[in-house]
């Protein structure tokens, strides 16, 4: 039981970090950014290139990953989302296509073989019968720190409050003097950076692979669908539901069914509670 609790908490922390950037875009821009998984992939590969190939310090690798993710997010907003404004289907299709194009680019630059990242913090800790790597512990702690920081940013800063206003009512926010375009741009930049950093931790926990963007995208979509239109707290709760479900199914039922329960949960929520478990929440 202690293993399930420890591993569930650690995995859920990582899932929360993966999902929060996606939730942010969906909540403010009402856009399902299906290229979100590509931010994670870019973040992982940027970190790999600068730290493992060029030998730069790990902190520099994480910062560079965040910068790359942010720039990609901003460019995507400027070149695609803003251009197709209002046409949600076109935005979703184009973001999905963009993810595939980025995958092809990664194959071209890094080839299609999987790569394993060195642990960000090496070592293991055995506690309550469970083996915990310092790497996943660091990832979970960093996730919590980033999510708390984001929560405080949204609640306590002028830009954060403007993001909340745009998420609730774009026209109302504009009348109150908020520039929705600028807020969207900032949000896409933050989302890209969060996704890229999540990608570094996710890849260091699993692997780097040109198709690694799919699994985190499914997690992020599941969090939004199950949680509702989205809030940071709601995303956190649902990330924990999914994380614990995966650990419980893997440990107690059958390892090959790991993702199946997440899918069943999505279908169940869509049928029984289309607005999600938490409905429409404040950001």
């Amino acid at each position: 039981m202690s293993q399930i609790i420890i591993q569930g908490l650690l995995l859920s922390g990582l899932y929360a970090l993966i999902a929060v950037g996606f939730t942010l875009i969906f909540s403010i821009g009402r856009v399902l950014n299906l290229a979100y998984g590509a931010y994670l992939m870019i973040g992982g590969y940027v970190y790999y290139h600068f730290t493992q190939v060029l030998g730069m310090p790990q902190i520099a690798g994480i910062l560079l990953a965040a910068v790359f993710g942010s720039v990609i997010g901003i460019l995507k907003y400027r070149l695609i989302v803003k251009t197709l404004k209002g046409d949600h289907v076109a935005v979703e299709i184009s973001t999905l296509i963009l993810a595939v194009v980025i995958q092809a680019g990664i194959v071209l630059i890094f080839n299609d073989s999987s790569k394993i990242l060195h642990p960000i913090v090496p070592g293991v800790w055995r506690i309550g019968g469970a083996t915990v790597t310092f790497n996943i512990l660091t990832a979970a702690l960093a996730s919590w720190a980033i999510i708390i920081g984001l929560y405080l940013f949204v609640r306590n800063t002028h830009i954060g409050r403007a993001m909340q206003a745009v998420s609730m009512d774009v026209k109302g926010a504009a009348i109150s003097g908020v520039d929705p375009d600028r807020i969207n741009l900032i949000t896409w930049g933050i989302s890209g950076a969060l996704g890229a950093v999540a990608g570094v931790f996710f890849a260091s926990y699993t692997q780097l692979n040109p198709s690694m963007w799919v699994a985190p995208l499914i997690i992020a979509v599941a969090v939004v669908i199950v949680g509702g239109i989205g809030s940071i707290i709601g995303s956190l709760i649902v990330a924990h539901i999914i994380g614990f479900m995966e650990i419980i199914s893997t440990t107690l039922i059958a390892a090959e069914l790991r993702g199946v329960f997440t899918m069943l949960l999505i279908i169940g929520v869509l049928v029984l509670r289309p607005r999600g478990l938490f409905g429409r929440e404040e950001l």
């Binding site: 293993q3 995995l11 083996t131 926990y205 690694m212 893997t250």
Partner: peptide
């Protein structure tokens, strides 16, 4: 991609 619970 996550073998921790399996190894446990």
């Amino acid at each position: 991609v996550d073998f921790a619970p399996l190894f446990n």
